[in-house]
Protein backbone atom coordinates (compact mmCIF):
# COMPACT_ATOMS: atom_id res chain seq x y z
CA UNK A 1 0.00 0.00 0.00
CA UNK A 2 1.40 3.30 -1.11
CA UNK A 3 -0.15 5.20 1.72
CA UNK A 4 1.91 3.59 4.44
CA UNK A 5 5.10 4.32 2.58
CA UNK A 6 4.06 7.95 2.10
CA UNK A 7 3.29 8.16 5.79
CA UNK A 8 6.75 6.98 6.67
CA UNK A 9 8.31 9.29 4.09
CA UNK A 10 6.41 12.20 5.63
CA UNK A 11 7.45 11.35 9.17
CA UNK A 12 11.08 11.00 8.21
CA UNK A 13 10.94 14.26 6.28
CA UNK A 14 9.38 15.79 9.35
CA UNK A 15 12.42 14.56 11.21
CA UNK A 16 14.62 16.57 8.86
CA UNK A 17 12.56 19.71 9.24
CA UNK A 18 12.36 19.25 12.98
CA UNK A 19 16.07 18.76 13.43
CA UNK A 20 16.87 21.83 11.37
CA UNK A 21 14.36 23.88 13.38
CA UNK A 22 15.07 22.76 16.91
CA UNK A 23 18.03 25.08 17.31
CA UNK A 24 16.17 27.98 15.79
CA UNK A 25 13.27 27.30 18.10
CA UNK A 26 15.50 27.62 21.13
CA UNK A 27 17.09 30.85 19.90
CA UNK A 28 13.83 32.35 18.79
CA UNK A 29 11.99 31.30 21.90
CA UNK A 30 14.54 32.38 24.45
CA UNK A 31 16.45 35.28 22.99
CA UNK A 32 13.76 36.42 20.56
CA UNK A 33 16.20 36.83 17.73
CA UNK A 34 14.96 36.27 14.19
CA UNK A 35 18.14 34.61 13.05
CA UNK A 36 18.14 34.71 9.27
CA UNK A 37 21.56 33.10 9.28
CA UNK A 38 20.32 29.89 10.89
CA UNK A 39 20.31 28.06 7.55
CA UNK A 40 23.95 29.05 7.13
CA UNK A 41 24.81 27.50 10.49
CA UNK A 42 23.31 24.26 9.20
CA UNK A 43 25.33 24.71 6.02
CA UNK A 44 28.51 25.14 8.08
CA UNK A 45 27.71 21.89 9.83
CA UNK A 46 27.49 20.17 6.47
CA UNK A 47 30.74 21.61 5.23
CA UNK A 48 32.30 20.77 8.58
CA UNK A 49 31.39 17.16 7.96
CA UNK A 50 32.94 17.40 4.50
CA UNK A 51 36.10 18.92 5.93
CA UNK A 52 36.34 16.14 8.47
CA UNK A 53 36.01 13.64 5.66
CA UNK A 54 38.42 15.34 3.29
CA UNK A 55 41.17 15.92 5.83
CA UNK A 56 40.71 13.14 8.35
CA UNK A 57 38.68 10.62 6.40
CA UNK A 58 35.96 10.59 9.04
CA UNK A 59 32.52 9.23 8.54
CA UNK A 60 29.98 12.01 9.21
CA UNK A 61 28.46 10.09 12.10
CA UNK A 62 31.84 10.31 13.80
CA UNK A 63 32.47 13.83 12.63
CA UNK A 64 29.50 14.86 14.76
CA UNK A 65 31.80 14.77 17.77
CA UNK A 66 34.01 17.43 16.22
CA UNK A 67 31.57 19.57 14.32
CA UNK A 68 28.90 20.08 16.95
CA UNK A 69 31.27 21.53 19.57
CA UNK A 70 32.86 23.63 16.83
CA UNK A 71 29.50 25.13 15.94
CA UNK A 72 28.82 25.75 19.62
CA UNK A 73 31.94 27.89 19.70
CA UNK A 74 30.97 29.64 16.47
CA UNK A 75 27.59 30.44 17.99
CA UNK A 76 29.16 31.88 21.11
CA UNK A 77 31.44 34.08 19.04
CA UNK A 78 28.67 35.30 16.77
CA UNK A 79 26.44 36.15 19.68
CA UNK A 80 29.11 37.91 21.65
CA UNK A 81 30.48 39.96 18.79
CA UNK A 82 27.43 40.73 16.74
CA UNK A 83 24.15 40.03 18.45
CA UNK A 84 24.71 40.94 22.04
CA UNK A 85 25.82 44.51 21.31
CA UNK A 86 22.52 44.91 19.48
CA UNK A 87 20.26 43.38 22.11
CA UNK A 88 18.34 46.60 22.55
CA UNK A 89 17.59 46.96 18.85
CA UNK A 90 15.88 43.83 17.64
CA UNK A 91 15.38 45.31 14.19
CA UNK A 92 19.08 45.89 13.78
CA UNK A 93 19.71 42.34 14.92
CA UNK A 94 17.65 41.16 11.98
CA UNK A 95 19.75 43.31 9.66
CA UNK A 96 22.94 41.99 11.23
CA UNK A 97 21.90 38.35 10.83
CA UNK A 98 21.23 39.08 7.19
CA UNK A 99 24.73 40.48 6.83
CA UNK A 100 26.01 37.34 8.51
CA UNK A 101 24.08 35.17 6.08
CA UNK A 102 25.69 36.93 3.14
CA UNK A 103 29.16 36.67 4.62
CA UNK A 104 28.91 32.97 5.49
CA UNK A 105 27.41 31.91 2.18
CA UNK A 106 29.93 33.78 0.13
CA UNK A 107 32.93 32.88 2.25
CA UNK A 108 32.14 29.24 1.59
CA UNK A 109 31.59 30.04 -2.09
CA UNK A 110 34.90 31.84 -2.32
CA UNK A 111 36.75 28.97 -0.72
CA UNK A 112 35.09 26.12 -2.61
CA UNK A 113 34.12 27.81 -5.92
CA UNK A 114 30.68 26.34 -5.37
CA UNK A 115 31.62 22.80 -6.32
CA UNK A 116 28.95 20.32 -5.28
CA UNK A 117 30.67 18.12 -2.71
CA UNK A 118 29.28 14.90 -1.33
CA UNK A 119 30.05 13.37 2.02
CA UNK A 120 30.17 9.61 1.79
CA UNK A 121 29.14 7.41 4.65
CA UNK A 122 29.44 3.69 4.93
CA UNK A 123 26.02 3.09 6.36
CA UNK A 124 23.96 6.14 5.52
CA UNK A 125 22.65 5.04 2.13
CA UNK A 126 21.51 1.62 3.24
CA UNK A 127 17.81 1.09 2.81
CA UNK A 128 15.69 -1.66 4.26
CA UNK A 129 12.13 -2.52 3.40
CA UNK A 130 9.21 -3.60 5.53
CA UNK A 131 6.51 -4.57 3.12
CA UNK A 132 5.90 -1.59 0.89
CA UNK A 133 7.65 0.74 3.27
CA UNK A 134 11.24 1.69 2.59
CA UNK A 135 13.40 3.28 5.23
CA UNK A 136 16.84 4.71 4.61
CA UNK A 137 19.35 4.69 7.42
CA UNK A 138 20.35 8.32 6.96
CA UNK A 139 16.81 9.54 7.44
CA UNK A 140 16.11 7.15 10.27
CA UNK A 141 19.19 8.39 12.10
CA UNK A 142 17.94 11.94 11.75
CA UNK A 143 14.54 11.00 13.10
CA UNK A 144 16.04 9.22 16.07
CA UNK A 145 18.53 12.02 16.65
CA UNK A 146 15.71 14.55 16.65
CA UNK A 147 13.73 12.52 19.17
CA UNK A 148 16.73 12.03 21.39
CA UNK A 149 17.70 15.68 21.13
CA UNK A 150 14.20 16.86 21.92
CA UNK A 151 14.05 14.69 25.00
CA UNK A 152 17.55 15.69 26.05
CA UNK A 153 16.79 19.35 25.54
CA UNK A 154 13.60 19.07 27.54
CA UNK A 155 15.43 17.42 30.42
CA UNK A 156 18.27 19.89 30.15
CA UNK A 157 15.92 22.82 30.44
CA UNK A 158 14.05 21.26 33.28
CA UNK A 159 16.70 19.68 35.44
CA UNK A 160 20.05 21.41 35.01
CA UNK A 161 20.98 24.72 36.54
CA UNK A 162 21.87 26.30 33.21
CA UNK A 163 18.64 25.02 31.76
CA UNK A 164 16.67 26.52 34.58
CA UNK A 165 18.39 29.83 34.21
CA UNK A 166 17.50 29.75 30.52
CA UNK A 167 13.88 29.21 31.41
CA UNK A 168 13.99 31.89 34.05
CA UNK A 169 15.46 34.39 31.64
CA UNK A 170 12.80 33.53 29.10
CA UNK A 171 9.99 34.09 31.53
CA UNK A 172 11.13 37.31 33.06
CA UNK A 173 14.50 38.91 32.43
CA UNK A 174 14.33 41.46 35.19
CA UNK A 175 13.36 38.97 37.82
CA UNK A 176 16.07 36.59 36.67
CA UNK A 177 18.66 39.31 36.90
CA UNK A 178 17.48 40.18 40.37
CA UNK A 179 17.89 36.57 41.33
CA UNK A 180 21.53 36.80 40.36
CA UNK A 181 21.42 35.14 36.98
CA UNK A 182 23.83 36.55 34.43
CA UNK A 183 21.32 37.21 31.68
CA UNK A 184 23.83 38.08 28.97
CA UNK A 185 25.85 34.95 29.55
CA UNK A 186 22.71 32.85 29.51
CA UNK A 187 21.73 34.29 26.16
CA UNK A 188 25.17 33.61 24.75
CA UNK A 189 25.10 30.03 25.92
CA UNK A 190 21.63 29.59 24.48
CA UNK A 191 22.76 30.87 21.13
CA UNK A 192 25.72 28.52 21.31
CA UNK A 193 23.45 25.57 22.00
CA UNK A 194 21.13 26.58 19.18
CA UNK A 195 24.07 26.82 16.80
CA UNK A 196 25.39 23.47 17.95
CA UNK A 197 22.00 21.96 17.21
CA UNK A 198 22.11 23.53 13.76
CA UNK A 199 25.53 21.98 13.31
CA UNK A 200 24.16 18.60 14.36
CA UNK A 201 21.46 18.91 11.74
CA UNK A 202 24.05 19.85 9.13
CA UNK A 203 26.29 16.89 9.83
CA UNK A 204 23.45 14.40 9.82
CA UNK A 205 22.04 15.88 6.61
CA UNK A 206 25.35 15.79 4.78
CA UNK A 207 25.06 12.19 3.52
CA UNK A 208 21.72 12.99 1.90
CA UNK A 209 22.31 16.19 -0.03
CA UNK A 210 24.83 17.58 -2.46
CA UNK A 211 26.53 20.45 -0.68
CA UNK A 212 26.39 23.98 -2.00
CA UNK A 213 27.07 27.31 -0.28
CA UNK A 214 23.45 28.35 -0.63
CA UNK A 215 21.90 25.14 0.64
CA UNK A 216 20.92 26.79 3.92
CA UNK A 217 18.41 28.81 1.97
CA UNK A 218 16.58 25.59 1.04
CA UNK A 219 15.64 25.01 4.66
CA UNK A 220 15.35 28.40 6.31
CA UNK A 221 11.79 29.20 5.29
CA UNK A 222 10.56 25.80 6.33
CA UNK A 223 12.45 26.13 9.61
CA UNK A 224 10.81 29.44 10.42
CA UNK A 225 7.42 28.05 9.51
CA UNK A 226 7.94 25.01 11.72
CA UNK A 227 9.02 27.12 14.67
CA UNK A 228 6.08 29.45 14.37
CA UNK A 229 3.63 26.66 13.66
CA UNK A 230 4.79 24.67 16.65
CA UNK A 231 4.60 27.56 19.00
CA UNK A 232 7.35 29.74 20.26
CA UNK A 233 9.85 28.16 22.54
CA UNK A 234 8.05 24.87 22.84
CA UNK A 235 10.32 21.91 22.17
CA UNK A 236 7.31 19.71 21.57
CA UNK A 237 6.10 22.35 19.17
CA UNK A 238 9.18 22.15 16.97
CA UNK A 239 9.01 18.37 17.11
CA UNK A 240 5.39 17.97 16.11
CA UNK A 241 5.37 21.04 13.90
CA UNK A 242 8.09 19.45 11.83
CA UNK A 243 6.11 16.21 11.59
CA UNK A 244 3.06 18.04 10.38
CA UNK A 245 4.94 19.95 7.72
CA UNK A 246 6.70 16.79 6.59
CA UNK A 247 3.47 14.81 6.37
CA UNK A 248 1.59 17.53 4.52
CA UNK A 249 4.43 17.91 2.06
CA UNK A 250 4.73 14.19 1.43
CA UNK A 251 1.00 13.64 0.94
CA UNK A 252 0.49 16.78 -1.13
CA UNK A 253 3.49 15.97 -3.26
CA UNK A 254 2.43 12.43 -4.03
CA UNK A 255 -1.33 12.75 -4.30
CA UNK A 256 -1.64 16.24 -5.74
CA UNK A 257 1.47 17.58 -7.46
CA UNK A 258 5.13 17.93 -6.46
CA UNK A 259 5.13 21.41 -7.97
CA UNK A 260 2.40 22.61 -5.64
CA UNK A 261 3.41 20.96 -2.40
CA UNK A 262 5.28 23.97 -1.05
CA UNK A 263 2.33 26.25 -1.69
CA UNK A 264 0.00 23.77 -0.06
CA UNK A 265 1.81 23.48 3.19
CA UNK A 266 2.43 27.19 3.35
CA UNK A 267 -1.31 27.70 2.96
CA UNK A 268 -2.05 25.23 5.72
CA UNK A 269 0.53 26.99 7.84
CA UNK A 270 -1.28 30.28 7.29
CA UNK A 271 -4.65 28.77 8.09
CA UNK A 272 -3.38 27.25 11.32
CA UNK A 273 -1.82 30.53 12.37
CA UNK A 274 -4.95 32.46 11.68
CA UNK A 275 -6.98 30.05 13.74
CA UNK A 276 -4.43 29.73 16.48
CA UNK A 277 -2.08 32.74 16.40
CA UNK A 278 0.26 31.41 19.04
CA UNK A 279 0.98 28.22 17.15
CA UNK A 280 -0.13 24.74 18.07
CA UNK A 281 1.65 24.35 21.35
CA UNK A 282 2.42 27.94 22.16
CA UNK A 283 1.21 29.73 25.22
CA UNK A 284 -1.13 32.63 24.75
CA UNK A 285 0.82 35.84 25.05
CA UNK A 286 4.08 33.94 24.65
CA UNK A 287 5.11 35.84 21.60
CA UNK A 288 4.65 39.16 23.34
CA UNK A 289 7.15 39.71 26.09
CA UNK A 290 7.91 36.64 28.09
CA UNK A 291 5.67 33.77 28.80
CA UNK A 292 4.25 32.80 32.06
CA UNK A 293 4.59 29.07 32.07
CA UNK A 294 6.74 26.49 30.37
CA UNK A 295 5.90 23.10 31.71
Amino acid sequence: MDILNILVVGLLLGGIYGLVSIGLNLIFGVIRIVNFAHGELVMLGMYGAYLAYATLGLDPYIAVLLVVPALFVVGIIVHRLVLQPLHAESNMQIFATFGLLIILQNAVLAITRGEGFSVPSKVAGFTFGVGDIRVTVSRLVIFLALTATAIALHLFLKRTLIGKSIRAVTQDRQAARLMGINVERTFTITFGIGSALAGLAGVLLSPIYTLSPGIGGNFILAAFAVVVLGGLGSVAGAYFGGMIVGLVEAFAGFYIDPELKQAIWFLIFLVVLIVRPTGLFGQVGAEEVGFREQN
Binding site: V82, M92, Q93, A96, F98, I103, N106, A107, P213
Partner: peptide, 24 residues
Protein backbone atom coordinates in the same frame (compact mmCIF):
# COMPACT_ATOMS: atom_id res chain seq x y z
CA UNK B 1 37.79 38.80 -8.67
CA UNK B 2 36.81 35.68 -6.92
CA UNK B 3 33.47 33.99 -6.50
CA UNK B 4 31.43 35.89 -3.97
CA UNK B 5 34.19 38.29 -2.90
CA UNK B 6 32.13 41.42 -3.42
CA UNK B 7 29.30 39.97 -1.40
CA UNK B 8 31.59 39.15 1.51
CA UNK B 9 32.57 42.80 1.53
CA UNK B 10 28.94 43.87 1.38
CA UNK B 11 28.08 41.57 4.25
CA UNK B 12 30.83 43.06 6.37
CA UNK B 13 29.69 46.57 5.61
CA UNK B 14 26.19 45.54 6.65
CA UNK B 15 27.47 44.09 9.92
CA UNK B 16 29.55 47.13 10.69
CA UNK B 17 26.69 49.43 9.78
CA UNK B 18 24.39 47.53 12.12
CA UNK B 19 26.90 47.63 14.96
CA UNK B 20 27.88 51.27 14.62
CA UNK B 21 24.65 52.86 13.49
CA UNK B 22 22.19 51.16 15.80
CA UNK B 23 19.30 53.39 15.05
CA UNK B 24 20.04 53.39 11.39
Amino acid sequence: SGPGVHLILLGFVMLLAALFMRRG
